[in-house]
Nucleic acid binder design. Structure first.
Length: 325
DNA sequence: AACAACATCAACCGCAGGCAG
DNA sequence: TCTGCCTGCGGTTGATGTTGT
């Protein structure tokens, strides 16, 4: 990946002129663990606002755009990391056949996935797979509309596009729970402690596991979505803040190499080890913050549609054998 | 072991649209 | 209406990892 670049291209050009404006101080390139932590802390305590303000107030020498991207694609708590499941692949392929390269819309229909992630996945994997599949199975005249259409992966797409569109577009307005509030409460109202007390998503066998876990604490809503209008004390609970495995990659921070692996371990080790902590606080949190009252005047839009509903729909598909717990 | 080719994916860039003044 | 700022989106880049020779 890109090395952290204290001076971007234009900054380097400006540097000769001793251009001391703000822009020339902006960092570019990979984010260091310290920067991540700054942004996480700021977002947890202050919530989402004007990104340029966030960048400034969080003490980050980054442009707001960069902060937004980092948060959306990497740091936000409701992200699901890891490989795409076959079901997700199928959904992506089918949604792409309908929506085209509207990655944000596709991402909005895939829990915990970002448009960037899906875009990369499509360009790097699915595109080729489809190409190969088409090359090997070019048998025209399979247009019997009464039959379930077979997608490029060989799975049966049991619904027509209209149904799928309806399924995708028919978003329930159920909003997320006040999960950030819960997280704050679960950490004795100390948002900073959350940095050291995260649920390790790596321990979750699957997204369904996580859904089941969260549903127990009334958190399944808002697990995903269009990045959320995150307000103070209204952010996703016990989704991990762990970072995706960069493995042994190392990055530099101000010239000093940073072991990303240890950085990730630092993050991961501080995650919740189990859901006990969540559950222990559940009733109190619900009492205090009214978890039962989904969608009552909350601005925290974590999704435009009802994930549970979709999961039920999907799980009812003959070709999709995973079930929502 | 060394190198090349390919794959992956975080991050950047430029543009468009919305909104306020 | 114009201007500037901000956000969001999609395309692209390029560093790094992996695989093949």
């Amino acid at each position: 990946m890109r090395k952290p670049d204290l001076m971007g291209k234009d900054q380097k050009m400006n540097n000769n002129n001793n251009n001391n404006n703000v822009k020339s101080k902006l960092r570019k390139g990979l984010w260091s663990p310290e920067e991540d932590e700054k942004l996480i802390r700021y977002m947890l305590t202050n919530g989402q606002g004007c990104w340029s303000d966030i960048a400034r107030n969080a003490g980050l020498q980054r442009c707001g755009k960069s902060c937004r991207l980092r948060w959306i694609n990497y740091l936000r708590p409701d992200l699901k990391r890891g490989a795409f499941s076959p079901q997700e692949e199928e959904l992506i392929i089918h949604l792409h056949s309908i929506l085209g390269n509207r990655w944000s819309q596709i991402a909005a229909r895939l829990p915990g996935r970002t448009d960037n992630e899906i875009k990369n996945f499509w360009n790097s994997t699915l595109k080729k797979r489809i190409k190969n599949s088409n090359a090997s199975t070019t048998s025209p005249n399979n247009s019997d509309s009464s039959e379930p259409t077979r997608d490029v992966l060989g799975g049966i797409m049991p619904i027509n596009e209209h149904d799928l569109m309806a399924m995708c577009m028919d978003s329930s307005s159920s909003s997320s729970s006040s999960s950030m509030q819960a997280m704050v409460f679960a950490n004795q109202l100390d948002p900073f402690s959350m940095l050291n007390n995260r649920y390790d998503m790596a321990n979750a066998a699957s997204f369904a596991d996580m859904s089941a876990c969260l549903s127990q604490v009334g958190m399944v809503d808002g697990l995903y979505g269009d990045y959320g209008m995150i307000e103070p004390n209204k952010m996703g609970l016990e989704r991990d803040l762990s970072l995706p495995p960069l493995e042994s990659r190392s990055i530099e921070d101000n010239g000093a190499p940073i072991d990303v692996k240890s950085h990730n371990n630092h993050i991961n080790n501080s995650c919740f080890n189990n859901t006990d902590q969540i559950q222990n606080h559940n009733s109190k949190v619900e009492d205090l913050f009214g978890f039962g009252n989904h969608g009552q005047g909350e601005n925290f839009r974590m999704g435009e549609w009802d994930f549970e509903g979709l999961m039920q729909d999907i799980s009812s598909f003959p070709s999709l054998d995973f079930q929502v717990q």
